[in-house]
């Protein structure tokens, strides 16, 4: 494959689609080599690339969007409008997250049961030290304080200025 010609320094076409392909890892090796060379020479091209990267990162940084509460719950409980007659209505499920949680709970209950049995065997043989309940809210505060000494002060300390977020 022949190497594409390298445009003269300063010649920047912001509509050059290779910029997006470069960021997405979708350009050819030859295109990448050529663009690397042009980027090293051209501040304008670096700026153009930065602009595309900013737009790309902006969309990629959008959080996942949750459906309104009850949307999937209703679908799963009532079935799809045009499909409900064709398939048995599934048992009502609270919602997808709760369902996942419930499955996890079942899974870990089994694991926990085995672990509990193993622990029981150990307890019979060996005296155990006292039980502890880690003060997790205090620990998160202490972590924030320590982090703030070497990382950005504001972003480290902000958790100390809001409720911790632990569920009761």
């Amino acid at each position: 494959m022949s190497r594409p010609p390298i445009p003269p320094t300063g010649s920047v076409d912001p509509d050059d689609t290779v910029l997006s392909a470069y960021l997405d890892g979708e350009c050819t090796d030859a295109e990448r080599v050529a663009l690397d060379a042009r980027l090293a020479d051209s501040a304008d091209l670096r700026a153009a690339l930065a602009e595309v990267a900013a737009a790309r990162d902006a969309v990629r940084g959008l959080p996942l969007r949750d459906a309104p509460p009850g949307f999937f719950e209703r679908l799963l409980a009532e079935g799809l409008p045009e499909a409900s007659a064709a398939v048995p209505t599934p048992a009502p499920v609270p919602d997808d997250l709760t369902a996942r949680r419930a499955r996890r709970t079942r899974r870990w209950t089994a694991v926990g049961g085995a672990a509990a049995a193993a622990m029981l065997a150990v307890v019979v043989l060996v005296p155990r030290p006292a039980s502890v309940t880690p003060p997790v809210a205090t620990f998160t505060d202490a972590h924030a304080v320590r982090s703030s000494l070497q990382d950005d002060v504001v972003s480290s300390l902000v958790p100390l200025g809001v409720r911790a977020g632990f569920r009761p």
């Binding site: 960021l23 980027l39 501040a43 304008d44 670096r46 700026a47 690339l49 930065a50 602009e51 990267a53």
Partner: peptide, 9 residues
């Protein structure tokens, strides 16, 4: 960015 102070590489 255009003056070369920043850019993505």
């Amino acid at each position: 960015a255009a003056t070369g102070a920043t850019g993505v590489l």
